[in-house]
Simulated assay, not measured.
Amino acid sequence: MTERNLARVLVIGAGIGGLTLAHALVRTGIDVRVYEADDGTGDRPQGYRIGLASAGMEGLRASLPRRLYELVEATSGSLTGPGLLFDEQLTVLHRDLEGPPADSRAMDRQVLRRILLGGLKDRVAYGKRLTGFAERTDGTVTARFADGTEATGEVLVGADGGNSVVRRHLAPEVGLVAADLCGAMGRTPGTDRFLRLVPGRGTMVKGPGITLMLGRMHFGTEPSAAAAELAPELDMPYRDSYVRWVLLVPPEHPAAADPQRGRRDARELVLELIDGWHPDLRDLVRSADMSAVGRSMVYDRPMPSWPVGRVTLLGDAAHLTLASGGNGATTAINDAVRLSARLAEVRHGERGLASALEEYQADLLDRGNAAVEFGKEALKRFVPAAETADARPATADER
């Protein structure tokens, strides 16, 4: 690998991990540009509430400007209190379910992404769908985009999610693995009636053959009000607190046979599956914001090493974990912190780029593949059938 001064890093993907990396690199004095396939006109339909362990919060503290980290803290919610297990008629079966550590925080995914975009306006380019890249003999790497443009830097980081274009070029033999499970997800405004269903860190409802999981997103401070005080330049819309719900359907259930049902079908599917359940649960689904109802397969995928060059991976692009582990965002943030530290060593002349990226890759795969396994184990708490179900390669339609 030709050594040259580390002047610019190209980040493909403006998700949580890629944007955290961008902030961390700016703090080290490394120029960074982020290229996002979305057009930048709105939020992504990627889910709602996520949990950040203390390591994730510390990673954001280390990477973000102080006022943006204060905004993260202000808009986060508690993940303390009891973890309840109900049957479908809301009879309490257990009051102390295992859950996230007490120092974890709940974050709305879209709010967090808007915060992370703060201060990076001139560094993020939208409508840039990566088609390929090439490492040059002069010690640079060039990214090529579908709109005919190119960008050049000394390092390219694929932070482009589970369907990563960068990963497909680095490790084309690796495909998504579809867990034999599907789920429907929704978000319902947090009225007192519905918030009472989730008094603590989470609630699980076990019905015949299916599991409904509930989590509250109760903002410490309403996001637009918090942004007006701490970062008034941010475009932060008003957001009510809500209950996030996920219905997990085991593989033997007939509903799992059709993973391509549309958003409107998802609500009817869930209501069919919970027919006869307690009225509070059925009304929770009926009252969901339709823009926040969807259904998709659930994937996991361990990742092997790849030849070390000027291109590397971060977050879901390298280790797509099951959501049941609750650790995907935290792991991606940790990737960003560790990669920025290695690149800072290169920037300061303390080591070569090849050595830095080799060390980062080894650490990335150790932690990332452990997170994949953690997610699989966590899934067993929700769906007993997952203990014996084998994962299978995703079909072309599912990828």
Rank of each mutant, 00 (worst) to 15 (best):
D147W: 00
T149K: 03
E150L: 04
E150Q: 10
E150F: 08
E150K: 03
A151F: 03
A151T: 07
A151G: 06
T152H: 06
G153P: 02
V155Q: 05
V155I: 05
V155P: 01
V157N: 10
V157S: 12
A159V: 11
A159D: 04
D160Q: 12
D160I: 09
N163M: 13
V165S: 08
R167D: 05
R167T: 05
R167P: 02
R168W: 01
H169L: 07
L170T: 04
L170F: 07
A171H: 08
A171E: 10
V174F: 04
G175N: 15
G175M: 09
A178L: 13
A179W: 09
C182T: 14
A184P: 01
M185C: 11
M185W: 15
G186N: 08
G186R: 10
R187Y: 11
P189Q: 12
T191W: 12
D192G: 02
F194K: 02
L195T: 13
R196T: 12
L197F: 13
L197G: 07
V198E: 01
V198A: 03
V198L: 08
P199I: 08
P199Y: 08
P199R: 06
G202D: 00
T203W: 02
T203V: 02
M204K: 04
M204W: 04
V205H: 11
P208G: 04
G209D: 01
I210S: 03
T211A: 10
L212E: 07
L212V: 09
L212S: 06
M213Y: 13
M213T: 11
L214H: 07
L214R: 09
R216T: 00
R216S: 12
R216L: 00
R216P: 05
M217R: 09
H218V: 09
F219V: 05
F219Q: 05
F219K: 10
T221F: 02
P223G: 04
A225D: 13
A226D: 01
A226L: 00
A227I: 07
A228K: 06
E229W: 07
E229Y: 06
E229A: 15
A231W: 05
P232R: 07
E233S: 15
D235K: 13
Y238W: 06
R239G: 05
D240W: 04
V243G: 06
R244K: 08
V246E: 08
V249L: 01
P251F: 06
E252H: 12
E252S: 14
H253W: 00
H253Y: 01
P254F: 11
D258W: 10
P259Y: 07
P259G: 14
Q260D: 04
R261K: 13
G262W: 08
R264I: 04
R264N: 09
D265M: 13
A266W: 05
R267E: 14
R267D: 06
E268Y: 07
E268F: 11
L271S: 00
